[in-house]
């Protein structure tokens, strides 16, 4: 099996492509192929080289750590089965993010964005507040879909408006705002989150290319979230401007 891997030794050094050939085993995924290369780091010219660096954790497409560009599309390498991919298999890092080394990237900006939009429900206090309000089952069902986000970065990679010329935080943290605003307790801090995504680099930077919803490995309705937040922020901006007691 042939692999063409875009490599980079340092965050600041230029990238280069190195080819590898490894024996085929049944049911291999891209990660087990990378492990095979790591076992014997020799490129297809027969030269000894450094093992390829990549990130992985859960190996079942729930952690989002092993995202990379495989044959041109960003996805998780754990669920990329080698037998279903065209040869040679090209692997590239998601360059929307800073490259740490080879296929490892730094997704810190996504976690910073989650902090910025307050993607949590503040319930800490000095005494027991008792049970919160109940959530209607129909709402719980679609909110659960939004909760599947694993901060993998694929939607940011696919978005034409997330790039070095823009501050756009990307679709993932926006959808989390809708998730936490949908929660009956989280709803109590709805305005704070909406104001956070109305700041520079927020919601308004979406250009509706809808690549995010096409690319999301978890099938999260990101563009529905964005449009729903567009509606919420329309009302929020009126409240901010004219004043409101609600």
């Amino acid at each position: 099996m042939k692999f063409k891997i875009t490599r980079q030794d340092n965050p600041d050094t230029p990238s280069y492509v190195e080819e590898f050939e490894i024996p085929h085993r049944p049911n291999m995924n891209v990660i087990s192929a990378l492990m095979e290369i790591r076992r014997n780091p020799v490129n297809s010219k027969g030269e000894a080289t450094t093992p390829v660096s990549w990130e992985m954790n859960c190996l079942e497409e729930v952690c989002g750590a092993c995202s990379m560009i495989i044959n041109g599309k960003p996805r998780q390498s754990c669920t990329a089965l080698v037998d279903k991919l065209e040869q040679p298999i090209t692997l590239e890092p998601m360059k929307t993010f800073p490259v740490v080394r080879d296929l490892s990237i730094d997704r810190s900006r996504m976690f910073d964005a989650l902090k910025k939009v307050k993607a949590w429900i503040p319930i800490d206090g000095t005494y027991d507040l008792g049970p919160g309000p109940r959530m209607p089952e129909t709402k719980r069902q679609w909110a659960y879909e939004l909760s599947k986000c694993m901060t993998c970065g694929v939607c940011l990679e696919a978005c034409p408006n997330v790039n070095s010329k823009s501050e756009f935080i990307g679709p993932a943290p926006l959808s989390q705002v809708r998730l936490f605003n949908a929660h009956p307790t989280g709803e109590m801090n709805k305005a704070e989150r909406l104001n956070a995504i109305m700041d520079d680099g927020g919601l308004a930077n979406c250009g509706n290319s809808q690549n995010c919803v096409q690319s999301c490995p978890k099938g999260i309705p990101l563009t529905t979230s964005i449009a729903a937040l567009n509606r919420d922020t329309t009302f929020q901006s009126f409240k901010n401007f004219f004043g409101s007691d609600r």
Partner: peptide, 11 residues
């Protein structure tokens, strides 16, 4: 809170 909102959104 209003001041925290940048100009991008309105523009």
């Amino acid at each position: 809170t209003i001041m925290a909102v940048g100009r991008d959104f309105a523009i």
